[in-house]
Design a protein around this nucleic acid. Structure first.
Lengths: 364, 364
DNA sequence: AATCCTAGTAAGGACTCTTGCCCAAAACGG
DNA sequence: CCGTTTTGGGCAAGAGTCCTTACTAGGATT
């Protein structure tokens, strides 16, 4: 509403920010190159570089330009500006990385989880992976394969939905390894952000069909999480069951005998063999998923539907769902997800962005 | 991504903007008062006021302060900075207003529409109302009781949904009366924006239950329109019908005989009498609407559901829908809409904001 | 009429950005 | 091998913006 108060200090901070962002984009530059890239005059850039070097954010690398003309000094972001921790937690295990403000991955660790891991196993694996990395980090970004409470960052159990990772408070577990904020979100939401980069469309719906069922709604270029962070938890949405009657989506898999024993998680292997052996199963699943999607189309008006997850990416499923939607009142193109380990990719990108924000903030 | 290039000119523009916004908020102020409100020093404000007076954006009103101390001169936004046109188009008629940058309504006109108005009637009524107002305006903001194509601003007909206003291109009709952009959106979306102010929650779902059926999803503080602008067009969403079988929401009203003859529009009068005479009808309607809402809850995770529209605000309906949702897997409070003529209110507010943006932009 | 109080102005200072010029140093060309 | 070209960097001058401080102007109040 009210614009910022103008001041010379603000101008200087802006100049410094321009310099830092240029060095984040390009890693090493001479003062003349920074001036050319930012459009700011050479003397001003020289002043800014001097300030930033004095405050320790930027260093003279000692390298010199080669080629025609006088050799210039290369400057770069100072080493030791800290790292951000990135972690992806799935029932198969924890993958953790540390990244720096340049976007480079400087460390990586993995901790496996056994099939029927208990409540505390995930926490232990996360702590183990984080311990193996150089630390502490300045912030953390976490992807978890369960619903995440937006306010607290904790994983939450929803009735009748599989609880793949289990009760876990990533911020608490990572507290010894992170000095700053811990951002936690659902793996499906992260995957949608990764696909957002790939498809280049601001409004779409991403559907994850794997052991769990998930959905992310991207509107106006961002994933919309909702009040508690539970947007897209579609297990309970009523849709068409195998016998044509209405039932919650999650019940469809029970009715088809495609759940893992003693669990509400989907038995992906059984599902894949069922699809290949019986053409009707794919139809039935497509009709059930399509019922949920038609509600999503009506509510969110996506330009596109992106299918991800182990069985969501199967060509047979894509075709069946596409066919299902094409028959509806508002046809929407259906495509398969393309990004590899999308949740880690997107979380890493966010971690770099947040770390850069911290570094820029330090200049003020 | 890249921050703005710092310059002295930018500082000056910021100061001018501070002055203009102060005068938009307060209508008349002395230079000393502006300095106190903005936190900027008196000499700087004096300079800015001088610049703005020279360029004609601000005028000395001739009024002087009374009271202790030297009397100061009051300054105000110049008259003649132009107006914005606000129009609300419903099957009952067109209401148009002109507003200025201070937020004052400076003109108002109404053009009625007959019950069975044809395709061109709405356009004629809109033109008539606009003509009766002092013009031309610098921009227009339009609310229309039909789906609006986000890219073109035209009203679109969706299959099986009532087409209340009819084929209309508000931008084309208003072209003679408006020199700048014409923003068009659905009346339900505007109403949701008005309720947003009232409820003070960033994530909620607004449902309009009137002649037509509409829904708006507010996430992270803004109405999300979707790719084509058709987010929330829920007539086709499958839900539970009177006999317990699944059917599109709009069919429920046909099955209950609550449509107006030869139309897919709802006969609100018949519906209201049906609710009061037969307790079961309210239950049936609440179950049908609740089915759609439970999908919306799963997909958008609202903190609240707001019911608007002629029969959505009936206490009996609110209670029945509330009861319906409370039984579901994710209960959400249901409240009734509170704002009067919400679509006009919100469109007016937006028009003032856009006009102010234009005025501030002129200072650069 | 003297005093108080507030709006507005003037002067000076501190900064920031830009332009233009010069210098240093490395590669190129004859 | 030496002059020319080319490029990074520094310096000086200038214009512009904001701020602080101190002062003036002109109504009320006493």
């Amino acid at each position: 509403m009210t614009p910022a108060k103008p001041s010379l200090e603000m101008l200087r901070a802006l100049t410094d920010e321009n310099v830092l962002r240029a060095l984040m984009a390009d890693r090493r530059l001479t003062r003349a190159e920074i001036a050319a890239r930012t459009g700011i005059s050479k003397p001003t850039i020289s002043d800014a570089v001097q300030r930033l070097a004095a405050s320790g954010l930027v260093v003279d690398t000692g390298e010199r330009t080669t080629g025609r003309g006088r050799s210039g000094s290369y400057y770069a972001l100072a080493p030791g500006l800290g790292t951000a921790l990135v972690a992806s937690i799935s029932p198969r295990g924890v993958t953790a990385e540390t990244v720096d403000a340049l976007g480079d991955t400087v460390g990586r660790a993995h901790a496996a989880l056994s099939r029927n891991a208990g409540e505390h196993q995930a926490a232990r694996a996360l702590a183990e992976a984080a311990t193996r990395l150089e630390g502490p980090s300045r912030l953390a970004v976490v992807s978890a394969a369960d619903p995440v409470d937006r306010a607290t960052g904790r994983l939450v159990r929803l009735p009748d939905a599989p609880f793949l990772v289990g009760a876990l408070d990533p911020a608490a577990v990572l507290a010894p390894h992170v000095t700053g904020p811990v951002l936690v979100d659902n793996d499906v939401n992260w995957a949608a952000r990764a696909e957002h980069q790939a498809v280049g469309v601001g409004d779409f719906v991403y559907v994850h069909l794997g052991e769990g069922l998930g959905c992310a709604v991207v509107t106006d270029g961002a994933v919309r999480r909702g009040h508690r962070g539970l947007a897209g938890e579609v297990a309970h949405v009523h849709t068409t069951g195998p016998d044509g009657s209405a039932m919650p989506l999650t019940e469809v898999f029970a009715a088809l005998g495609l759940r893992r024993p003693d669990s509400t998680a989907i038995d992906v292997q059984a599902l894949e063999t069922a699809i290949t052996s019986d053409a009707g199963t794919a139809e039935t699943l497509a009709r059930a998923v399509g019922g949920v999607l038609s509600a999503a189309v009506a509510l969110a008006d996506p330009a596109l539907i992106v299918l991800g997850g182990e069985w969501g990416r199967l060509p047979a499923m894509r075709a069946a769902i596409d066919h299902q939607l094409a028959a509806g009142p508002r046809p929407v193109p259906v495509v398969a997800a393309t990004v590899d380990s999308p949740e880690l990719t997107a979380a890493r990108e966010r971690a770099v962005a947040e770390l850069r924000e911290l570094v820029v903030g330090a200049a003020r």
